[in-house]
């Protein structure tokens, strides 16, 4: 970070003493013991820490039940991050499948991430498609320009899941593999909502804001008139065209990220990016703005939700999660990203 750029200051909030969610009424509130309602609900639902079993054999069953009749066994969504690169590695090396790697670049991908992907597909000898488009740029710009509470990552994920389902249909691939962690998963054996459940208390306000934005913006802009308003809509449309299961090996494998990061570094020349949020992640440039806005509007991000789930499952300590979630970028980074919007009409 450049010392001349002011640090990002976000007002202090009381944080749950068990997970890492801050109080954010009306969705998240802390009780007298400083524990949030999400953790209390988790305890009730899980009968006081009943352990969730993650069995690799369940994943094997899914793989066997969804065998491809075509050239590729699965389509892997590769962001260049550790989790999706590990998913690619596992599908190729551990399960001996023939995957098609697929990356989408909305114009904000980092060179570090793209280099990780190139190295991985080259070393593993996997066919690879890079889909680059600035289709979403105006929508992103509108969210930033208007100060909307819509979470940038939400329309982005709606878009990329739609594109991914299209790609699976085009190559007649029965299985889409993502690098989602146990913190992003909700239910086994597959997660129907592709990453997060918009109806979870932690996401209600964020989802409402994104929904409101999409409802209005897509009506007003002919370019986006067919843009799905929600992930459910994406899934409904996808089912009509081509049935593909979405699954992540990380839901079933017991290895923690530390284990596979070492393998990726050694075997696939994989590197952590110079700067990314949260710590030890590989996310796009736009993510910095998304995080900043989420923190400003809601006091937390979807990463806080993910890591809280991992803390509740004892896969991560609260201290580790808090450390990873510390804001590690400044206004200089945000300005740098904003410059990428310069060419977009109407953005100031």
């Amino acid at each position: 970070m450049d010392a001349s750029n002011p640090k990002i200051e976000l007002g202090p909030r009381a944080v749950c003493q068990r997970c890492v969610l801050p109080e954010s009424k009306p969705d998240i509130w802390l009780d007298g013991a400083g524990i949030c309602n999400i953790c209390r609900d988790f305890d009730k639902q899980n009968n006081g820490h009943e352990q969730v079993k993650f069995l690799e054999s369940d994943f094997i069953k899914i793989l066997n039940q969804n065998k491809s009749k075509g050239k590729y066994d699965c389509l892997i969504m590769c962001s260049g991050g550790k989790d999706s690169t590990a998913a690619l590695y596992y599908m190729k090396k551990r399960y001996k499948l023939n995957p098609l790697a697929f990356t989408f670049d909305h114009g904000f991908e980092t060179e570090d991430a793209l280099e990780n992907i190139r190295n991985a597909v080259d070393i593993l000898g996997v066919d690879f498609i890079l889909f680059k488009s600035d289709f979403m740029k105006e929508m992103f710009a509108q969210i930033v320009r208007t100060g909307s509470k819509a979470v940038l990552c939400h329309p982005c994920s709606i878009w990329y899941m739609g594109v991914t389902f299209d790609m699976a249909a085009r190559f007649d691939i029965p299985m889409i593999v993502a690098g989602w962690t146990k913190g992003q998963a909700t239910h086994q054996p597959l997660m129907s909502r592709c990453g997060c459940n918009a109806h979870q208390a932690e996401f209600v306000s964020m989802s409402k804001a994104t929904q409101a934005f999409l409802d209005q913006y897509t009506q007003e802009n002919p370019k986006y008139k067919d843009f799905p308003r929600s992930m459910e809509e994406v899934l409904t449309l996808a089912k009509k065209r081509h049935k593909a299961m979405v699954v992540s090996p990380h839901w079933f494998l017991p290895m923690d990220a530390g284990v596979y990061v070492e393998i990726l570094k050694k075997e696939l020349k994989w590197k952590f990016p110079r700067l990314s949020y949260p710590g030890l992640s590989t996310n796009c440039y736009l993510n910095f703005i998304s995080v900043h806005n989420s923190m400003k509007h809601f006091g937390y991000t979807h990463y806080h939700v993910e890591m809280s789930k991992m803390v509740r499952a004892s896969l991560l300590s609260r201290q580790e999660a808090l450390k990873l979630l510390e804001i590690n970028f400044d206004h200089g980074v945000l300005q740098h990203v904003m410059q990428k919007f310069d060419s977009v009409k109407g953005l100031k």
């Binding site: 003493q17 068990r18 820490h49 803390v311 509740r312 499952a313 004892s314 896969l315 991560l316 300590s317 609260r318 201290q319």
Partner: peptide, 8 residues
């Protein structure tokens, strides 16, 4: 350690 922390 994580498990102990998680169980308060």
């Amino acid at each position: 350690r994580n498990i102990l922390l998680n169980h308060n």
